[in-house]
Amino acid sequence: MRARILSGLVPFLGLVLLWMLLWGQFTWLALITGVLLAGLVSITFYLPAVRLSGRLNPWYGLVFLVRLLVDIVRASLQIAWIALKPHYRPSNAIFAVPLRTRSDLVMVFTAEAIALVPGSIVLDIDRDTATLYLHALNVQSAEDVPALRKAVLATERRLILAAGSADDLERLRTGATVAGELAAEAARAAAAGEPGSGRASEPGGGSASASGEDSGTDSGTDSEGART
């Protein structure tokens, strides 16, 4: 219930704050007009509520922001150098990163943050299995990919520590990924449902695609709708 109220209140307060930021003054007039306009905007442009975890750790939030700023500077200098250096030989990679969060918000912010940090742009997101597909610039060989993947997971880790749900924190502690859990669930369901049938016999690729079909239940609007 607390998380539900917060989920509605946070975007509303964000709109009010934005209004005051744009006017550049923190006066009663700006506050009252901001509240009126925020109410009008939330009623006319109704959006499905973002599910917040109801938990925010200011210290880890600050750690995330400072680290993000450092990463932005590093990434910009790095890309600028790659663009300007004399002997540029293109060599890129597209790789998958299975995340540990089930929250849309954390997933979105992870995707936003890693698009600004060294090396990566989000090409595709599989919401069901919480997997990001990233494009990385200047990857010389396949051996460099695990290090990049680790950097992305570190970003996600900072976000979960800052505002993730207890569920996500638990997964962070055990190191389990959503994709892995879904695959295990699907395999268990298949084994319990139809023992001896050939469907559950492929543990690798087969179970991953099965999990994708099974779990797309809760309000999959954006990722499902955009998929063609």
Binding site: S91, N92, A93, Y133, V145
Partner: peptide, 15 residues
């Protein structure tokens, strides 16, 4: 110029 491509070869690509 790609050294790795895990998006084309992902499990549910055919879907």
């Amino acid at each position: 110029i790609l050294v790795v491509d895990e998006l084309t070869s992902r499990p549910d690509a055919d879907r």
